[in-house]
Amino acid sequence: MQADRPLIDRYLEMLSVERGAARNTILAYRNDLEAASAHVRGLGGADAEGLRALVGEWAALAPSTVSRKLSALRGFYAFLEAEGVRDHNPAHSVARPGLRRPLPRILSHEEVARLFEVAEERAGGERPAHHDVRMLALLELLYGSGLRATELMSLPRTAIHPDRPFLILKGKGGRERLVPVSDRARAAAARWAAFVPGGQPWLFPSGKSHISRIRLFQMVRELGAAAGIEPSRISPHVLRHAFATHLLSGGADLRALQTMLGHADIGTTQIYTHVDSAHLVELVNRRHPLVDLKRGAA
């Protein structure tokens, strides 16, 4: 394993510098490669048979985890081949497990309306609590613009301009994208910004930094509970899914949605077409006139 470490470092440096891989991807790949190296007693000299035995040890893991680990191995060996360290890629002959991407959880239009009803009622009046004004701004940006939790939390204080209906964000892999911001979201953000001290660099500060992912998750779930939504069904990412699904069902172009969400691969965006199809199938099964005819025949 000691001999593998410099090679792993070089590979991960390449992913970071040349391909703009996200920090979490780098950390996950490092853990995957170091664990694999320890298991096969060195990746540099491992063959396809040893790698297949390794993959067999992953049988109890989730298919998505196995797929990521295998991607790390294949990419690592492709790098070694390109660098002249290996003359072939032994991971090519290792079968990738079947992977069925689960449909994302979403909320109905009615449930989203209830969330906004509660948030707007709390943030209304002449002297609302500052955390209620903040919650409304967060909700508007999560559902109204489809921001990732990390992107939302780390917004600079001056990111949202009252006269500019869009944001330019740097997302996964360092890719920049343009995200529309609705009039009501800009108004909610401007209202919240009045509570933020001028010296703060973040729009949603907390202590010496910005609010955390965990705190945002807790806030969204608390709002969901107040709106009568089961806590396990709601999170910041579920609101992003709802944004995408509701836009698509309303006639949004798939390519435009891909750009707004910051997906590198349109295949990731296409999952929302399956969500809509699933809803249509459920609708037919429950509401089609033949359903009543079958009940009458029984």
Score class of each variant (00 low, 15 high):
131 H>D: 12
97 P>H: 12
46 A>Q: 08
230 E>C: 05
267 G>Y: 01
5 R>S: 13
104 P>W: 01
247 L>P: 06
196 V>K: 02
32 D>W: 13
117 E>S: 14
67 S>I: 00
104 P>M: 02
52 R>D: 01
168 I>K: 14
181 V>T: 10
252 A>W: 10
114 R>V: 01
261 L>P: 02
8 I>W: 13
87 D>I: 00
128 P>W: 11
117 E>M: 06
95 A>Y: 08
258 Q>E: 05
105 R>W: 00
104 P>N: 03
154 S>R: 15
77 Y>D: 02
109 H>T: 04
45 G>W: 03
124 G>W: 06
273 T>C: 03
2 Q>K: 13
126 E>V: 02
137 A>D: 06
179 V>Y: 14
1 M>Q: 07
56 G>N: 10
282 E>R: 14
123 A>H: 11
230 E>S: 10
89 N>T: 09
268 T>H: 08
7 L>R: 14
188 A>P: 03
1 M>T: 10
102 P>T: 09
242 A>G: 10
134 R>E: 01
259 T>Y: 08
105 R>F: 00
124 G>V: 01
208 K>R: 15
41 R>E: 12
90 P>W: 11
11 Y>R: 04
94 V>W: 07
30 R>I: 04
265 D>C: 03
130 H>N: 01
14 M>W: 11
93 S>D: 13
212 S>H: 07
121 E>T: 13
116 F>H: 09
190 A>W: 01
160 I>A: 05
198 G>E: 15
22 A>P: 03
104 P>E: 02
31 N>Y: 09
269 T>E: 04
43 L>T: 06
251 G>Y: 05
222 E>A: 15
193 A>H: 00
43 L>N: 08
176 E>P: 03
214 I>P: 00
171 G>D: 10
111 E>K: 07
86 R>A: 02
15 L>M: 15
100 R>M: 10
263 H>N: 08
170 K>D: 00
76 F>H: 11
68 R>S: 05
295 R>P: 00
122 R>H: 14
85 V>P: 00
36 A>Q: 09
154 S>E: 14
219 M>C: 04
175 R>Q: 13
204 F>Q: 08
148 R>H: 11
141 L>P: 04
298 A>W: 10
257 L>E: 10
61 L>K: 13
12 L>S: 06
230 E>P: 01
1 M>K: 07
103 L>F: 12
95 A>D: 11
228 G>Q: 12
87 D>E: 14
233 R>Y: 03
6 P>V: 07
228 G>S: 04
37 S>L: 07
109 H>Q: 13
95 A>V: 12
87 D>P: 01
197 P>F: 12
249 S>L: 01
182 S>P: 02
107 L>I: 00
103 L>W: 14
34 E>H: 05
206 S>I: 01
150 T>F: 12
34 E>P: 04
220 V>W: 13
165 P>H: 12
27 L>G: 05
201 P>I: 05
67 S>R: 15
128 P>D: 09
162 P>G: 07
269 T>K: 11
269 T>H: 11
89 N>V: 08
142 L>F: 09
123 A>V: 03
232 S>K: 14
193 A>T: 01
174 G>Q: 08
77 Y>N: 07
187 A>M: 09
132 D>E: 15
91 A>E: 06
96 R>V: 02
62 A>N: 07
119 A>D: 07
